[in-house]
Amino acid sequence: MSEYQYYEFLAVDRPLDERQQAEVRALSTRARITATSFSNEYHWGDFRGDPRAMMDRYYDAHLYLANWGTHQVMLRLPRTLLDLKAVEQYRVDPHVAAWTTREHLILDLTSQDEGGDWIEGAEDSLSAIVGVRAELAAGDLRPLYLAWLAGYGTWERDEDAFDYDAEDELEPPVPAGLLSSLTAPQRALADFLRLDADLLTVAAQTSPPLAKTRDDPRELARWINDLPSGDKERFLLQVAQGHGARVQMELLRRFHGAPGISGDGRPRRTVAELLDAAADIRQERQRQAEASHAAEGVPPCTRT
């Protein structure tokens, strides 16, 4: 298979103006560029731009694919909506990283599998994943835990992915609602980062049920009415300037409050315990399959 790389960027909170579009056009004459998107694929050569710099200056989401096994997604949020301290708990070098600019926090989530099969349709993943931004802004930290778990899950297919002392690393706080209550964007993120289903099943064993919350419009209206007049004027100005999506995220974050980042006292498992438990599940499933085939009289050598 010849070389293949795919780049996609999305501007979610505010479209690019004509000057900004001209600036990114200078980086690629063949890219498909609109006020809210940039996409291009390469079968030879490389993209002349710096994705990190483009996220710093222009875009809120980025997806990168390469046929040597790289899956990467970046997400940009206002710093006021996602605390770097919360993100740091889920850092896994080089799979989960984050940095801040003057106004934003940017997440870099990467999966690498040089020996894996090409996943058809992976280029279409960003539109399914980008909803994770609003979930993180609302205080849902499940995407961070999924990325952390997928990062260490790399060890299952690459024994040299980490030093062995990483086996004793403790998991970060386990958010509520893993597995059965994952949202569609979270499932898309887990699939894109190649998160093993058995590993997720093990991780979810200590995840409490997701609390059922439904915003009361009357309570929200009263809360907005009580906001200081200066805040209301600032929010209205931002909406008029084209920042409506950001204002919505900030209002809901302030209404719901910031998520806790210290955990709830449940025992935290080591990386080795999680990986070993997932391996036990796979082995038990294989044992049951072999027993079923034996009962049906199917020789092991004929199985596919």
Rank of each mutant, 00 (worst) to 15 (best):
L10E: 12
P209G: 11
Q5F: 03
E120P: 05
Y90K: 04
P78L: 10
V96N: 02
A128P: 04
D13M: 06
F162Y: 13
V73G: 03
A197C: 07
I281L: 12
A122I: 04
M1I: 14
T154W: 07
Y4V: 13
D163C: 15
Q112C: 09
P228W: 00
Q283L: 09
S262R: 05
L195N: 01
I33S: 10
P267C: 11
R253M: 05
D108Y: 01
L136K: 01
A150E: 07
T213A: 13
L170W: 07
L236F: 11
A197W: 12
F192D: 05
E296V: 12
Y152V: 09
K85H: 14
N40V: 15
R214E: 14
A211K: 15
P267S: 09
F235M: 13
S39E: 13
A161T: 00
E103G: 14
S111F: 12
I224A: 05
L82H: 00
Y4P: 15
W118S: 11
I224Y: 03
F235W: 10
L251G: 10
L146M: 07
A138V: 05
Q241M: 15
V132M: 07
Q89L: 09
F235I: 12
G116M: 11
A188W: 04
F47G: 10
G242R: 00
T154S: 11
A161Y: 03
T110M: 02
H256R: 14
S39T: 14
A279E: 12
H256P: 11
D231K: 07
G49M: 08
E290F: 15
S181A: 15
A35S: 14
C301E: 09
A279R: 13
L77W: 02
A137E: 02
L109G: 01
A245Q: 12
R30P: 05
N67Y: 03
P217L: 08
S127M: 04
M249D: 13
T201I: 14
V24F: 02
M74D: 09
M55R: 01
T29L: 11
R303C: 14
V174H: 02
Q205Y: 06
P208C: 07
P51D: 12
P209R: 11
H243T: 11
R157K: 13
R234P: 09
E296M: 14
D226E: 13
